[in-house]
Nucleic acid binder design. Structure first.
Length: 512
RNA sequence: GGGCCCGUAGCUCAGUGGUAGAGCAGGGGACUUUUAAUCCCUCGGUCCAGGGUUCGAAUCCCUGCGGGCCUACCA
């Protein structure tokens, strides 16, 4: 019998013995104090005590998972951890009739214990247990308490074990929650309304990416998972909402890696009567606010880099940056052929069916974007790259669009939104032509969206921010998978979690 | 997608051609203020999978699977 099976069998045996004594999975528990509150209660009692040697706080009942056991004959020390901290428990055989039942407790079980809090000789706040019970019996062994869980694959596939074993995993999850909460508050305070728009769509637009396809059985039709939030949020501007935002999951049918997850969290906001310059100022404020709320500073440490998120950020333009960092003025290479030739000279790879705009973007990715370590706004993109943005006055080859780069990564993307329905239709038709020419990452013609625009959308500034990227930036994490609780993983045949489960479970239905 | 590296006990890791190991966890025992408790004993293996080389493979070679890092597209 494999070892893991033996360990599980032993724990199942203990579960049976606990069942004979009571319910090791009770429906309700009585917690009067968290571990942190229990310790605080002792400290408060110590402040007013006259005899510092024998301080006992009021009785407490705490709950938590057993993380350590030190059994010493007629006494035992156990540590339990709850959501906010850890506390030590002291069990004595001369106090507890059921002391021997501690044999049935393993690392990982949840206990409810009552007693008074005192300080041991070595100074640790400790519950002198007067009553206790198991409130959840775990039947699988926990990861090593001291070394933690280091196997990266297990940490991602069984994130609950990572969270159990590694403080850092808990911290990242908490900081991510703080980032999202701060963003919600930031927009709320500025009069933005949070909305939710469809994930399942007749066609997936608003970005240049391949969508996932799914099927609706009752309607017997294929639907697409959204790749952006943009086109529906703009419909809301048509409907008279002036400030909206959405924080939602989008899905892009691309590879998985430490920099890509097929689903990721996107923030988009749209503000009527604002332009992209105003959006840029808002983004500066947003990032600084997030950093201050989560970290207490706008100075970020990330690898070897020190980044300041204090406003204002550096500003340049797409064309100037490419001239400055690569010596390339793309207005001198107006045809696809000329630009392709240049890219090959500079050893920049691009797909055989890449358009002029796609090749240009490859040049930017190669020469310019990695240079922007400190937050830098890149303004005024070529029109060909930006089918949903408004053209600059007197310069139809460029649009009012910026992207924000930090640490060489794109963090934000924003436009003065295109609201001329005739221009929008033309641009979508141009995208469709590129698609017909073999580029499968283009904007689609969304007739329903165009009808909405034809009813009139006010001038507006729109913004998109990849939340996972922001969390990476704030936490200093290098891999996207560290900031996503359950990152997408490839199938693995021999799933660890499946084995014992199959053995001790009776099939609910006769096998077919 | 390309390059490099990794996969050994529940967990953390040794072991580079000659009988598969250690610590922790688990089981038994001693121990009434320990805290990575300590001490004695002990159970525990599909060495990722398949094929090959060899008298002999965890070890060398090939293929596959999974993962990591770097790189590319993206956000």
């Amino acid at each position: 019998m494999p070892t893991e099976q033996e360990l599980i069998a032993q724990r199942l045996e203990k579960r049976q013995r606990l069942l004979a004594l009571g319910d090791p999975y009770p429906p309700r528990v009585q917690r009067t104090h968290t571990t942190a509150e229990a310790i605080a209660a002792l400290e408060a009692a110590e402040l007013v005590a006259t005899d510092a040697e024998h301080v006992e706080a009021a009785p407490v009942t705490v709950v938590g998972r057993v993380t350590a056991q030190r059994v010493m004959g007629r006494a035992a020390f156990l540590d339990v951890r709850d959501g906010v901290g850890r506390i030590q428990l002291h069990f004595r055989r001369d106090v507890l009739d059921d002391f021997a039942n501690l044999d049935l407790v393993d690392l990982g079980d949840f206990l409810e214990v009552s007693g008074t809090v005192f300080r041991t000789r070595t100074g640790e706040a400790t519950v002198a247990v007067s009553a206790w019970r198991v409130i959840t019996k775990a039947i699988r062994p926990m990861p090593d308490a001291w070394h933690g869980l280091t196997d990266v694959e297990t940490r991602y596939r069984q994130r609950y074990l990572d969270l159990l074993a590694n403080e850092r995993a808990r911290q990242i999850a908490m900081q991510r929650a703080q980032v999202v909460a701060t963003i919600r508050r930031f927009f709320g305070e500025r009069g933005f309304m949070e909305v939710e728009t469809p994930v399942l769509q007749e066609q997936a637009g608003g970005a240049a990416a391949r969508p996932f396809v799914t099927h609706h059985n009752a309607l017997d039709r294929d639907l697409f998972l959204r790749i952006s939030l943009e086109l529906h949020l703009k419909r809301l501007l048509v409907g008279g909402m002036e400030r909206v935002f959405e924080i939602g999951r989008v899905f892009r049918n691309e590879g998985v890696s430490y920099r890509h997850n097929p689903e990721f969290t996107l923030l988009e906001s749209y503000e009527a009567y604002a332009d992209y310059q105003e959006v840029a100022r808002m983004v500066e404020s947003l990032l600084a606010t997030v950093a201050m709320d989560v970290l207490g500073t706008t100075d970020i440490h990330h690898g070897d880099h020190e980044v300041s998120l204090a406003a204002p950020f550096a500003r340049t333009t797409y064309r100037e940056a490419l001239i400055e960092y690569a010596g390339i003025d793309y207005t001198q290479y107006p045809t696809r052929e000329a630009l392709a030739e240049l890219a090959e000279e500079r050893h920049v790879a691009f797909a055989p069916n890449a358009s002029w705009a796609t090749i240009l973007d490859a040049l930017m990715s190669e020469f310019v974007e990695p240079r922007f370590i400190q937050p830098t706004f890149l303004f005024d993109y070529p029109t060909a790259l930006s089918p949903l943005a408004k053209k600059k006055a007197g310069d139809p080859d460029h649009v009012e669009r910026f992207e924000l780069f930090v640490l060489g990564y794109e963090i934000a993307n924003a436009y003065s939104e295109l609201n001329d329905p005739v221009d929008q239709r033309t641009r979508m038709e141009e995208q469709a032509a590129k698609r017909d020419a073999g580029d499968d990452e283009t904007e689609l013609i969304d007739e329903d969206f165009l009808v909405a625009l034809e009813h009139g959308m006010p001038p507006a500034g729109g913004l998109g921010i990849g939340i996972d990227r922001v969390v990476q930036l704030i936490t200093g994490e290098h891999s996207l998978r560290e900031v996503i609780l359950f990152p997408a993983m490839r199938d693995r045949d021999a799933h660890v979690a499946d084995r014992a489960h199959d053995e001790d479970e009776t099939p609910a239905e006769p096998s077919a």
